[in-house]
Write a protein that binds this DNA or RNA. Sequence first.
DNA 1: AAGTGGTCTAGACCACGGC
DNA 2: CCGTGGTCTAGACCACTTC
Lengths: 240, 240
Amino acid sequence: MAQNRHNGLPAYQKIQRAIRQRIETNKLKSGDAVSSERELARIHGVSLMTARHALAGLEREGIVERRRGSGTFVAPPRIHFNRLMSYTEQMGSRGLTPNSKIIVAKIIGDEPEVAARLGLPATSRIVKIERVRHTADEPFALETCFLPADEFANLIDAPLARTSLFATLEHDCNVQLAYADEEVDATVAEGRVAQLLNLRPGAPLLRIRQVIYSTKTKPVIYVIGFYRSERHSLFIRRMR
Amino acid sequence: MAQNRHNGLPAYQKIQRAIRQRIETNKLKSGDAVSSERELARIHGVSLMTARHALAGLEREGIVERRRGSGTFVAPPRIHFNRLMSYTEQMGSRGLTPNSKIIVAKIIGDEPEVAARLGLPATSRIVKIERVRHTADEPFALETCFLPADEFANLIDAPLARTSLFATLEHDCNVQLAYADEEVDATVAEGRVAQLLNLRPGAPLLRIRQVIYSTKTKPVIYVIGFYRSERHSLFIRRMR
DNA sequence: AAGTGGTCTAGACCACGGC
DNA sequence: CCGTGGTCTAGACCACTTC
């Protein structure tokens, strides 16, 4: 019997979706027992191996925990470490309202080093968006994003003071962001950067340069950020 | 038929071990095709599902890649991002010889903030080891480690100028390190730190404070490190 | 067309946990 | 003891890739 003659989704995925849904709608809470393999097999009219496959997949995702001899249980909510998040998302997850001021939004064509980071020819046209990030009227970061103008020229008119660049890319430009490689070092505030961040020259700044890749392993954004050290620190979890 | 009556290891793990071995001994290189499910089933005298299970496990570990309709192939060598590594290990992985000078190695008892980070009572006795890290005679980092003296008092006599603290802990003290939470920010060199790192006051420094946990989710080491910014930057990969 | 991985069945025995 | 997950069988059909 074909698994997807009925509606186009494998049986094990239908089972997973059903369980995920029960968790998302709080019918199942962290620590609760999920139906056993045998129950699921009976309920969904599949064989034991198929029910197993469904649970194994959910376990790999960290959604459930399986304990031999005991059962399958909803895993405690995951703590997200080292997740690629936009400023908007980070602030949102702390219950703060993000705030940005656009300093520059234009197309440039003479930044060979930036072009190289994006994997483009040296004189490529590039969208440059420079924003000062605020919380409660105090500036705390200066972020400059660069994107290939060929694909994203329309971004210079996007309402980025209010909406997230990530959200705009993922929803309006049909780009799925996958991961970012960051290079972090320390520097001191000088000149224009000091002025925009309202800092005295010589104040320590965290500098983060990141290349953000799409799911197609293609560089999409290059960001240089300067973060006021007394207002911002970076958290990382490293695994052995 | 019992899977482990023969020798105590499930069949799928034996298959995995066999494949891993062929990769480690370079009989199979990156990109090479691994025996197909059907071949493995025949060779090892198991059913198709069991061979499948073996390959699925190796795929989850990132050791092989499976391509429908095409076959199973040895995955490209993994790049380790965000791995908890000691200075010695980091230098070694770049083909450099590590070099340290011990500045302080003693037991202290009046560092309530450090004690708190280690999850200890405020006046606990704590091992303090301060080291300057060199490469080619140029100092580039000052690292201060703190460990509970109850368990690790013997470390003050360990030959840490030459051997790795991680290695000593894992081999001699029977402690398995699991992960670390790091807090990164920027600061400037001052006073004693500037002097030890041979920097002018006001030079930017990367400061990394990390709590390293054992596999028992117990804090084992608290480290404060100052890194010369022009000699060191931090790489992180963030996933979406 | 031949071969590969992906899904699935309808059973089986084992090892473990809790009662 | 009974229910749980862990391993396993000997097949099957499908979707896909390669030739």
